[in-house]
């Protein structure tokens, strides 16, 4: 039993390290993909969501950047997407992303923009930032899949959410897949370059994070 209790008046900010989540979800979920809106709903609970940030890398401007459309989709849903340039043409190596996320967490903490920071990543590189945020009097929750979770992260945070147990993978209707004629379009792939394409998903009506 945790000594920490939730307050519906808590202002929370969610920081999602997209690459970490992508790597965590196994490629065998042929007909499922992470629903980031549901992920935020699960983590938010009854509390007040101030913002949900997504951090990722992007390709060169003149190159065909497959992630751009997905970033736009997330923005359309109400996420604040921060995409840093990737110096690797295949986007297998990301640069600046973790630091950008850590900076945002600490900056918002010192500006008293939130009460609770939820870090959606199991990467222990964030531990110094988490400690700094905690030192600023804020609570830090970590949400991660067991496949990418660092034990030290679980120890460091105030509350840990095991994403393995959260129903956040969206099942895609078979008819949708057949209509699209391209099952790959809705498939999660562990390789970054084609990790998610939205070819069968037209931009929906702007419902935002509810």
């Amino acid at each position: 039993m945790s000594i920490i209790s939730y307050d519906a008046n808590d202002r929370i900010m969610i920081f999602i390290d997209l690459r970490n989540i992508v790597k965590s979800v196994s490629a065998d979920s042929k007909y499922s993909r992470v629903d980031y809106v549901s992920l935020v709903r699960c983590l938010k609970g009854p509390r007040k969501l101030i913002a949900a940030y997504v951090f990722d890398s992007k390709g060169a401007i003149d190159a065909t950047d497959k992630s751009k459309r997905f970033h736009d989709y997330l923005r359309y849903k109400g996420f604040r997407v921060i995409a840093r340039d990737s110096y690797d043409p295949d986007q297998n190596v990301q640069k600046e992303v973790d630091v950008a996320m850590a900076v945002q967490m600490v900056t918002h903490a010192y500006k008293n923009n939130y009460d609770v920071a939820v870090v959606v990543s199991g990467d222990r590189d964030f531990i110094p930032a988490i400690q700094e945020v905690q030192a600023a009097g804020k609570r830090v929750e970590v949400a991660a899949f067991s496949t990418s979770k660092s034990d030290e992260m679980e120890r460091q945070c105030d509350v840990y959410h095991n994403l393995d147990k959260e129903p956040i993978l969206s099942l895609v209707n078979l008819s949708d897949v057949l209509q699209d004629g391209n099952t790959e379009a809705v498939r999660w792939n562990s390789t970054i370059g084609s990790r998610l394409t939205m070819t069968n998903t037209a931009l929906p009506t702007r419902t935002g994070i509810r």
């Binding site: 965590s24 979800v25 196994s26 979920s29 499922s32 629903d35 549901s38 899949f145 994403l163 393995d164 147990k165 959260e166 129903p167 956040i168 993978l169 969206s170 099942l171």
Partner: peptide, 8 residues
């Protein structure tokens, strides 16, 4: 309906 599955 929205149908969601947990990773486990």
């Amino acid at each position: 309906y929205f149908v969601h599955l947990s990773a486990d």
